[in-house]
Amino acid sequence: MGLVPFAAFVGLFLIWPAVSLFRLAVRPTRNSNISAMREAVTGSYLDSFLYTIKLSFLSALLGAICGTFLTAAVMRVERPAWVRQAVSSFAGVAANLGGIPLAFAFLAALGTQGLVTKALSWFGIDLIGAGFTISNFAGITLVYLYFQIPLMFLVTLPAFEGLRPTWREAAANLGAGPTRYWRHIGLPILAPALLGGFLLLFANAFSAYATAYALSSGGARLIPVQIRFFLQGNTITGKDNLGYAMAAWMIILMIAVMGAYLLLRKRAEQWQR
């Protein structure tokens, strides 16, 4: 009973738009004889999906690895007590950073006129000549790492903190040194959290719109930007079905990824008791 306002709110402003999306995606159209849902995953549109998946996968993988090492490193710092505090707080901000400010920052650092580009050229490293630009595949991946690594940190920190010292000590008593402790105890216990973190990062990268949009040229191939291309404001491009279909596929992918994430999270929580 008390959940009625919440349910109504979520239903009206989240569920209903999502359902409408699917309704619009499967709606028959005159100028095409195959369904938009089918068309959205064929030809160049399929390439866009694969490109986006590739980028999301790579940025999630790198983000997960770097983020895990960052967490492990921060866990080992006890002495200046403010280090962990500072990294946590900064990660909270950076994980939610994106869009225009982030693109600005990277353009100012690594753009053709960027500070770091210039500094590297002093040392004889020609970043642009080497084919790097902030808006190609590698560039976007790098920019995404700016919010992916902190997100991974935030997800894994509680898991690392949940590793009880008694587990390490019990393992040592039973004959497992540091290496065997990590192989048999530490990593297996962290595994659900790490894998879950990777999935969350993947979903995060796949659905990032603002950053992709701000890095215009290279971002244009990414699905979120493609969706906007077909459904710009209130104008009718004639291919709006395709935009809806892409968004629908995106939600389907997110349901799969986030579902797996929630399952892993549940498992990790169970072990913590």
Partner: peptide, 10 residues
């Protein structure tokens, strides 16, 4: 060694 609590590998 047996610890106070929660030392079993989960």
């Amino acid at each position: 060694m047996v610890f106070q609590s929660y030392s079993l590998f989960p």
